[in-house]
Simulated scan of single mutants.
Amino acid sequence: MHDLNFKPKAFLFDLNGTMIDDMEYHTQAWYAVMNEDLDANLDYETVKKEMYGKNHEVLERVFGKDKFSDEEVKKLSIDKEKRYQEGYLPHLALIDGLANFLKRARNENIKMAIGSAAIPFNIDFVVDGLKIRDYLSAIVSADDVEISKPNPETFLKAAAALQVHPKDCLVFEDAPKGVESALLAGMKCVVLTTTHTMPEFEDYSNILTFISDYNDPKLNTLF
């Protein structure tokens, strides 16, 4: 782990589990789709382990390639996202401290973007529901990349959209695959412990620190 003496020119945020604490609702939605609709008979922890990447990638990992047609994947994906949004909407909120963190970053002229494996349907649900679009200069979604995390394409495209060199970007992530994506992109990372425990990240050398929310005083050194 590195000292927090890094002065980034841009903040790149993963969305789910990083700006909002919602991963439980994604898992619940997938659990319902896989077991109630698809009779997969999977336990909750097994479903939780597959919660990364694009929706079609999740389905391929669990059920195998070519199990579903493109139309079936699209329908299952939308059904899952509707379940997620219905379950999470009453709890929709930024992680503690993030509202002030976004304001401070903007005042300090630090550029900001979202780099997420979520589809635009879900990103818009969060960004517009929480009225944070004005803070963001770019959004890279699942629809904007060929290969999702841990491939570095998501964060590299976000950096390019901000016109900031990767080494000057700081990624905020909650998942090991996201941290790996940042590492492959040549970017340092701050990890939110909303979804995974610290030992799960022990293989990654690009982590500056771990935080539970954005009120952590360690973040003051970034400005």
Rank of each mutant, 00 (worst) to 15 (best):
M1E: 11
M1A: 12
L4H: 13
L4A: 15
D14G: 04
D14P: 03
D14Q: 04
L15E: 02
G17M: 11
T18K: 11
T18A: 08
T18H: 08
T18N: 08
T18W: 06
M19E: 07
D21S: 12
E24P: 00
Y25H: 13
H26S: 06
A29P: 10
Y31W: 13
M34W: 15
E36M: 02
L38G: 05
D39W: 03
A40F: 02
Y44E: 01
E45L: 14
T46L: 02
K48F: 14
E50V: 01
Y52D: 09
K54F: 07
K54C: 06
H56G: 00
E57I: 11
E60M: 04
R61G: 01
V62E: 09
V62D: 05
D66Q: 14
F68W: 00
F68I: 01
S69C: 01
S69Y: 12
S69W: 12
D70A: 14
E71V: 05
E71Q: 09
E72Q: 08
K74G: 00
L76P: 04
L76H: 00
S77D: 02
D79I: 04
K80V: 01
K82A: 00
R83S: 02
Y84E: 00
E86Y: 13
E86V: 04
E86T: 15
E86W: 00
E86S: 15
G87V: 00
G87K: 01
L89W: 07
L92V: 13
L92K: 13
I95L: 12
G97S: 05
L98K: 05
N100M: 09
L102A: 09
K103P: 00
R106D: 14
E108I: 02
K111D: 07
G115K: 09
G115C: 15
G115S: 15
S116M: 10
A117V: 13
I119S: 12
F121T: 09
N122C: 06
V126P: 11
V126W: 00
V127L: 04
V127P: 02
D128F: 02
D128G: 01
L130D: 10
K131P: 02
I132S: 10
I132Y: 13
I132T: 06
R133M: 06
Y135K: 03
Y135V: 03
L136M: 15
L136R: 12
A138K: 08
I139A: 03
V140K: 08
V140Y: 00
D143E: 14
V145W: 10
I147D: 09
K149G: 04
P150G: 06
P152H: 03
F155D: 04
F155A: 10
L156G: 01
A158D: 07
A161I: 04
H165S: 15
K167S: 11
D168H: 15
C169D: 09
L170E: 07
V171C: 08
V171N: 11
F172D: 06
D174G: 13
P176A: 09
P176K: 09
S181Q: 11
S181V: 08
L184E: 15
K188I: 08
K188F: 08
C189P: 04
V191A: 13
V191S: 14
T193S: 12
T193E: 14
T193P: 03
T197I: 04
P199G: 07
E200T: 13
F201T: 00
S205I: 01
S205Y: 04
N206M: 03
L208S: 11
F210E: 00
S212D: 15
K218A: 15
N220I: 14
L222E: 10
